[in-house]
Design a binder for these strands. Sequence first.
RNA 1: GGAGGCGUCGCCUAGUCGGUCUAUGGCGCCCGCCUGCUAAGCGGGUUGGGGUCUCAAAACCCCUCGCGAGUUCGAAUCUCGCCGCCUCCGCCA
Length: 426
Amino acid sequence: MFDPKLLRTDPDRVRRSQARRGESVELVDQGIAADEARREAIGAFEGLRAEQKTLGAQVARAQGDEKAALLARTKELSDDVKAAQAWVDEAEAAFYAIMKSFGNIIIDSVPDGGEDDLYVLETLGEPRDFEAEGIVVKDHLEIAEALGAIDMVRGAKISGSRFYVLTGPGALLEFALIQYALSKALEHGFYPMLVPALVKPSAMEGTGFLGQAAQDVYHLEADDMYLVGTAEVSLAAYHSDEILDAATLPRRYAGFSSAFRREAGAGGKDTKGIFRVHWFDKWEMFVYCAPEDAEAEHEKLLGYEKEFLTSLGLPIQVLDVASGDLGSSAARKYDCYAYIPSQGKYRELTSTSNCTEFQARRLGVRMRDADGVRPLATLNGTLCAMTRTIVAILENHQQADGSVIIPEVLRPYLGGQERFEPLSAK
RNA sequence: GGAGGCGUCGCCUAGUCGGUCUAUGGCGCCCGCCUGCUAAGCGGGUUGGGGUCUCAAAACCCCUCGCGAGUUCGAAUCUCGCCGCCUCCGCCA
C-alpha cells in the first residue's frame, strides 16, 4: 500500500503508475471517493464521541433528578455513537479494500512494457563455445543423472511431478552453495536468519502474495496457514507492527528457508529436471531502510547478486524489469539471468525488488528519527536459489567426458574436490 | 492434546466487586538547580499512535491497559471468543 494521502495530493501519479502496470486507472477515482466518504464518517464519529465523553463525566458527578435527566440524554447519544461507529467501520473497510488492490507506485525511470520486453542493462561473462570444444551440450538432468546427483523418478514417486531428490554429489553441491552463500552474506554485512517456512495469513497478506500471486501459494486449509514461496515473507513479517530506531537502519538480513510454489500458471513450461519445481531451498537477502536510501540499497543488492553468480563462473545478463511485469509490491525490479547452454538462452536465477513503503505500510513496520515516526522501505533479493543455481553450474561447467568442473569458490566446501565424475568412470 | 496461571505507558509495577483512570509508583530518559571534575542530591518533565490546523510553533480531536466481540448511559475493571507467554501432565525430534 502506498501513502493514502497520495490519492488527494497527487492522483495523477497513481494513475500513471496504474496505467504503466496495465492495471485499472478508474480505481483511482473510486479510491478518492472512498477516501472522502471515510473522512466524512470519521468527522461525524469524533464529534459525537467527544460529546458523549463530556456527558459521561457529568453523569459520574451528578445525583438524583439531575442524574436521571443526564442519563436519558446520554442514552440517546449512545445509539448515535454506535451508528456512527458502524458507518466509520464500513467506510474504512471499503477504502482499504480499494487501497489494497493497488500495486505499488512504480519508480519513474523503470522502462515501459510487459513480460516480453527485456531491458538488458549489462552482460557479464561469455557463454562457452561448446562446439569449438567438441562438446555435445547436455541438459542439466542428463548430466546430473550420470553423476548420480538428481533422482527425478523417485522424487515423483514420493511427492509427484516437479519434485526431486538431490542425491550424493547433488546434495553435497547444495550444501556447498549454502555454505558459500552464507560466507558471502556475512562478508557483505548481512545478519543470518533461519526463518519459518509456514506462516500466518497476515504475513502472506502483508507481503502482497495473496493478490495476483495467490494462485501460486500453498494454503493449509486445516490450520489456515501458508507455505512461503520465499523467505522474504518471513523476513518482512519479522518486524511487523514494530517501530525501528532509525539509528539501527539499514538492517540487512540473510534468511534461509525452503520455498514452495504451486507453479499453477506454468502449464507445460520447464518440465524437465529441477529448473522449475514446487519446492527448493533459498538464501534470501532482505533490507529494512529509510525510504530515501532504498534505491541505493537496491543497487547494492543487485551488485551482490552479480558478484555471486559471476564468482561461480556463470555468464549472466542483468535486466531492468519492465513496468507491466512487476509484482504488485515492487516499485522496481532487477533480474539476473544466467546462460543455460541446453536452452541456448539466458534464464532467471535471481531477482531483487525495491518495495519502497508498500510492504511496510501493510505490515505496520515503521521507523523513528528526528522527523518522528514514518514508514520505512523494504527490499529483497535472491542470494542463491539452490535448484536453478545447480542447473546453471552443471550445464555451464560440463565437460566432454561427462564430468563437471566445480567452481573454485565452492571447492573449500567440498573437501577441495575439483570435479564431479560420472558414476561409470568410477 | 489435558489442567492451571498470567498478559497495564521503553522496562518493572499499582489499580481489576464499572464512573474525572485525562492509569499509580520505581527504573530509565530529558530539562533545570547545586557542584573544582565525576558521583551523589534537589526540582520539574516523560505512554504510544493516528488525525485536523499551521510557514512553523502552539492548540485541538480520536484511538490506545494482548486482540476481537458482548453487556452498559459509561469497561483496564464484568461476560464470551481468540492470540501469546509461563508451570505441570501427556506425546515427541
